[in-house]
Design a protein around this nucleic acid. Structure first.
Lengths: 189, 189
DNA sequence: CAGAACGGAATGAATATTCATTCCGTTAAA
DNA sequence: TTTAACGGAATGAATATTCATTCCGTTCTG
């Protein structure tokens, strides 16, 4: 039962933070949406900043865990690795799109503490390793990893924003097309 | 002379909004940075929201104007058009990177009014037309324009964020590489 | 031409509002 | 019955906005 309230608060905060940003979301908004008293929030979180940081770390770790699930670390087939990344990203988006968008939009927040930054760095390192290996094997372009990651990230995030807005429909063909476009962006031709 | 104070406020607000977001930036911060009295801000802008909206519209229009400068509207050569877009984007980034990042990070703000959204839509329409034409000529992939735009946008924005952070250096080779990666992402192979 | 009157621009202290956080009475659990 | 969880009004700090006043360049006036 005590876990429930904490979950309710985290869930409500995630939705609001994603929609309005950290500073644009007030504690009254959060507790209202969560259906708990203001004091309850402070039972579980030291303050508003501790709440975002906890939430951010949980989401980031969740995403990273999903990516790592049966990831072919030892393969030298970058295309296969990329297919896995794309598949897991899609899978996570369907499970918890809000979390994905929340992480994406809070990555540069000045309120993120060291633990949050470290957690995010671990996620980026996953991508760095994928890209470095592909560069070494001369499969992936010799461009800054950050730029290549941004291409993949930007494509998937915007894809799902459009899906959520009802502008486009998430079909297997569409997903395959976006995956191919991203792959063509990062691979050497 | 009366324009000067207004410009000072807009410039200070742009830098702060870009760094800390709309809600993370207080009016005292803005007037402090601008070196004007609090009341002066309200002489030129109805309130804080009117300030972001004015700023947003000015920046968006500025970007669009740059993109349109000698753009080959009537050409059917999508590659040439894309080269122009990339060149002008780079040119604008060098002129006013803060403005570019400000627009990018405020595009989804709940505080944007209709005029701001309309201005932004005009910018997107520029890209839509480029992509639609390329699709019609079977040069550009039949994917949602939003996803294709996101790839280009994501790549350039993240590139310049890395440059500004001093992580990478903006060389002609790098720019050419990113341009090529984006083009390979959107074109049919 | 001197200087008085004017008006718009600018100021920053004062005000009203909103917000994060605390505190304590109530409720539920053990 | 004791203890922990909870709610929400109360608090004080921070914030956006207002407004009475000053400042200064321009324009009238004698």
């Amino acid at each position: 039962m005590s876990e429930t309230k904490r979950e309710l608060i985290l869930e409500a905060a995630m939705v609001l933070f994603e929609q309005r940003g950290f500073d644009g979301t007030t504690v009254p908004m959060i507790v209202d949406k969560a259906g708990v008293g203001a004091g309850t929030l402070y039972r579980y979180f030291e303050n508003k900043e501790a709440l975002v940081n906890t939430l951010f770390q949980e989401c980031v770790n969740d995403v990273l865990e999903t990516l790592n699930q049966s990831y072919p670390h030892d393969s030298n087939d970058s295309r296969k690795q990329f297919a896995h990344i794309a598949k897991q990203l899609v899978s996570y988006a369907n499970k918890n799109l809000t979390a994905l968008l929340f992480v994406d939009s809070h990555v540069n927040g000045y309120y993120l503490d060291e633990a949050s930054q470290a957690a995010y760095m671990r996620l980026r390192t996953f991508f760095y390793e994928f890209i470095d290996q592909g560069k070494k094997n001369e499969i992936i372009r010799p461009l800054p990893a950050d730029a290549l990651i941004a291409i993949i990230d930007g494509a998937f995030i915007s894809l799902y924003k459009s899906c959520r807005a009802g502008e486009i429909e998430e079909t297997p063909e569409l997903l395959a097309g976006v995956e191919e476009a991203c792959w063509d962006a990062i691979r050497i031709h």
